[in-house]
Design a protein around this nucleic acid. Structure first.
Length: 456
RNA sequence: GUGAUUGUAGCUCAGUUGGUUAGAGCGCUGGUUUGUGGAUCCAGAGGUCGCCGGUUCGAGCCCGGUCUUUCACCCCA
């Protein structure tokens, strides 16, 4: 006998958790579909050559590699062994588990370039794996929900992403949140305007921590990274900006007046806001944050990040525009914009705010209980009648004490039990007991159906 | 990858300077009621103290290793 256990950083989802996860995923899927996105799936494993080199050195370390099947040492010679595992990796493993959904999507687009009609709008909801060290809210297996449009530069895509985020949040009952938006070109412009041309990389890494460690520490870090004090002074006015999209835009217009790139970024943002207005929506929840920086390695245009107010959980959604998604797979010139919802984090947010619906969305509505074989036989006839009427019904599968059957219903938190005894058989009825109140009434089958339908 | 941290019954946790047979609450099983769940009462089952090794007359307790949990950093969802 061995104690059963799970691999590090993985978890099971029980019935309650699955019902709640599906509640979130259904809201997201419905929205993606409403905006014209089509679902695809890709394999859990990819060729290692597809995955490596796409996430930087750190990312490569976090890839789960799959040992070649069969005699995985057969390619290895005695001289290879001292070279270490890194040098021999290509002889031991040729497949790995997917690390995200973006790279497999890029591979898919490159492979299917002749079949796809661009712009191509796809969504994908699948688990990904990372050999990270697990922490709160960080797992080695987790789901991503990505939606991307590739093959167009149109800023309508950015406007629609804001629309989709709002719709999903409305469906989930979330009202207090901000969709932070910025543009990579504005960050480039800021770097130029403070006399640190081309150093937006380190600039972003540092200012991304502004919320977490504060302006003082960020200044220290920037100094260590070789920024002049003069540059820091010029950056200071951007740290504590007034609220309000239009005021901020005005400040930035002045700040970036000598940076054509920065001004273009501003203009792109303005166009996104203009498109939202022409669709008849306001800028509620939209928060222009010129200091927002995200995984800047491949974003080239708009950048998004969504935070829910009043909870201790980080961003629940994010994304941005990139150029040249598929260049490494031999298909240059395919720009796109995408974003993703963090399902696990949304789950934590809804739980913390107690926003999950309390009614039983998926569970059994009616349990048929009985006293003896005659009652069981009668229940057997009632069962398909209830199910045909759309009532989620189950029949207690063993003949045993009623007490046990009621305890079962009580533990599963079922709303109704239909008791089948001699009296009910004689009158072709069911004694329907509502477990929450303990009240009981004898009803014909038709009445039972009507009663349960109105109870939902 | 760096530095900490956790592990005792299904769950949450006690367990004294190392000392006989490792405890509690909740949960579980059966009964109190042969057509009625949640409450009360009664009885019962359930543990290789994460795993491996060491110190000791003696280890749940001390030491080493390992796995696991959680947290910070790095990075990220």
């Amino acid at each position: 006998m061995q104690k059963p256990s799970l691999p590090k950083g993985t978890r099971d989802f029980g019935p309650v958790q699955m019902a709640r996860r599906n509640y979130i995923l259904d809201a997201i899927k419905a929205t993606f579909q409403l905006f014209g996105y089509q679902q695809i799936e890709t394999p859990a494993m990819e060729n290692l050559s597809t995955l490596t080199g796409k996430y930087g050195d750190e990312g490569d370390q976090l890839l789960f590699k799959i040992l070649n099947s069969g005699d995985f040492l057969k390619e290895l010679s005695a001289e290879d062994l001292p070279k270490g595992s890194g040098a021999n990796l290509n002889k031991l493993s040729e497949k790995g588990l997917r690390y995200d959904l973006t790279v497999p999507f890029a591979r898919y687009v490159a492979m299917n370039r002749n079949e796809l009609s661009f712009p191509f709008k796809r969504y994908q909801i699948q688990p990904v794996w990372r050999a990270d060290r697990p922490q709160k809210g960080r797992y080695r297996e987790f789901y991503q929900c990505d939606a991307d449009v590739v093959g167009t530069d149109s800023l309508l895509c950015e406007a629609e992403i804001i629309g989709m985020i709002r719709q999903v949040f409305t469906k989930l009952g979330l009202t207090q949140y901000s969709i932070k938006i910025n543009n990579r070109k504005i960050l480039t412009g800021i770097a130029e305007s403070i006399g640190a041309d081309g150093k937006e990389g380190p600039l972003c890494v540092a200012i991304d921590k502004l919320d977490k460690i504060g302006w003082e520490k960020v200044q220290e870090e920037l100094q260590q990274r070789g920024f002049e004090n003069d540059s820091l002074d010029r950056l200071a006015p951007l740290v504590n900006l007034k609220e309000g999209v239009s005021d901020r835009m005005e400040v930035l217009h002045g700040f970036l007046k000598n940076s054509p790139t920065g001004l273009q970024g501003l203009q792109e943002l303005e166009e996104v806001f203009g498109l939202l207005e022409r669709m008849g929506t306001n800028l509620d929840h939209v928060d222009f944050d010129p200091m927002l920086a995200r995984g800047l390695s491949y974003y080239t245009g708009a950048i998004f990040e969504v935070k829910v107010h009043g909870v201790s959980i980080g961003s629940v959604s994010g994304g941005g525009r990139y150029d040249n998604l598929t260049g490494v797979f031999g298909l240059p010139g395919v720009p796109g914009v995408g974003f993703s919802f963090g399902v696990d984090r949304l789950y934590d947010v809804l739980e913390e705010l107690e926003l999950f619906p309390t009614d039983r969305m998926e569970g059994t509505q009616l349990l048929l209980a009985h006293f003896d074989q005659a009652g069981f036989d009668y229940a057997l006839k009632c069962l398909p009648i209830m199910r045909d009427a759309g009532i989620r019904t189950e029949l207690y599968p063993e003949v045993c004490k009623l007490k046990k059957q009621l305890e079962y219903a009580s533990k599963k938190d079922l709303p109704f039990v239909g008791i089948c005894g001699d009296e009910e058989i004689a009158t072709q009825t069911l004694a329907v007991k509502a477990l929450a109140t303990g009240t009981q009434e004898t009803l014909t089958l038709k009445e039972v159906i009507a009663r349960l339908k109105s109870a939902v």
